[in-house]
Simulated scan of single mutants.
Amino acid sequence: MGLQHIDAAALWADLQAVRERAPLVHSITNFVVMNYNANALLALGASPVMAHAQEEVADMAGIAQALVLNIGTLEPDWIRAMKTALQAARARGIPVVLDPVGAGATPYRNAALADLMAAGAPSIVRGNGSEIMSVAGVAAKTRGVDSSASSGEAVDAARALARDIGGVVCASGADDHVVDAAGRWAVLSNGHPWMTRVTGVGCSASALVGAFAAVQPDAWRATVSAMACLGVVGELAVERTQAAGAGVGRLQIELLDGLQLLEREAFTSRLKLDVRG
C-alpha cells in the first residue's frame, strides 16, 4: 500500500476491524506472560488461544487467523511444538509473528531460534534492539531478556533481517521502528518508560501484532497499527496511574483497561508517527 494509507485514520480502522472481527490468535508463548497476553488480546477485542501441546498445535493453527511464537521460556517440547505450528500456519498462509525473547543470551537459545527459523520464515519479527541485532547476525549483548542496544541502533539490522525473511521487522524501544522487505520504514514515538517495568508488556506487543495482522493483510501496516495502539494506550495508562498516586502494579490494570476503552479522538490526537520510507 502507498504511504498515503498510513495515517491515524487508517490505523484506527485496523483497530476497529480487530474489535469487530475478533480474530482467533493462537499463541505459543512463555508461561511468565501467558495470562497477561491472553488478557491483552481479550481487552483489545481479539480471541486468544494459548495452546502448546505438540498433539494439537497443528490443528489449532489450522483454525486460527494468526500464530504468535514467543521463545521466552524454552524447553525442547515447546520448540518442537512451535516448529509444527509454524509449518501448519505457513501451509495455510496465515501470518506468523515471532518474538525472539532473549536472542543472543545463551548458545542454547540461539540454536533453538535458528532451528525454528529454519523450519520457515515468520511473517513478522518483533523484538528489542539487541534481540533484532542478534537474529540478524549482528553481534549484540543481551542481558537476559533486556536490551543493551537501542531500537535506533538496530534499524540497519532490522532492514537486513526484513529482506532475509521477505517480511516485516519491528525493533521496539523508546521509539518503535517498523521496516519491511520493500524498504518501508515507520517510526512510532509513543509509550512511556514505566511500560518496561511491567512483565509481559513487550510480549503482549507481539500478541497484539498477531491480532492486527489477522485482519490487515498488509503485515507492515498491521505492525504499525499494533505498536501505535499499544504506545498510545501506554502513555494514557501511565498518566492515569500517576494521577492516582499509584505505581506499576496498578499500571498493569490500566493498560488492559486502555486496550478495551481506547477512543478514536485520544488515539488520533496522541499518535506520534513518522513515515520515512
Rank of each mutant, 00 (worst) to 15 (best):
A112V: 07
N110V: 12
E75S: 09
L116R: 01
A149D: 15
M117P: 11
L251V: 08
F267N: 09
I165E: 06
S225C: 11
F31K: 08
I63R: 12
E265C: 07
A43F: 05
T29L: 08
N128S: 11
E235G: 14
K141V: 15
A17I: 05
R159A: 12
A205L: 08
R159C: 10
A154R: 00
A222F: 00
D146L: 10
D180S: 00
I132E: 00
W194Y: 14
S130R: 04
I132L: 01
A89K: 01
E131S: 09
F267R: 06
Q252Y: 02
Y36L: 14
C170A: 15
A88T: 08
M34L: 07
R109G: 10
A10D: 05
S123P: 01
D14E: 09
L116E: 01
A121P: 03
V96Q: 00
A103P: 11
P193Y: 04
L188F: 09
M60Y: 10
D180P: 00
A174K: 13
A154P: 10
M133C: 14
M227K: 03
S206V: 00
L69T: 03
G173A: 12
G200F: 06
R143I: 15
T142I: 14
V248G: 02
M195Q: 08
G191W: 05
P23N: 06
T199G: 14
V233P: 13
L67P: 00
G234H: 04
L24N: 03
E56K: 06
A228S: 15
E153Y: 12
V187T: 15
A105Y: 04
D257K: 01
A149S: 15
V155L: 07
R92I: 02
A207T: 07
L44P: 07
V275G: 09
E56Y: 02
A157M: 11
H52C: 10
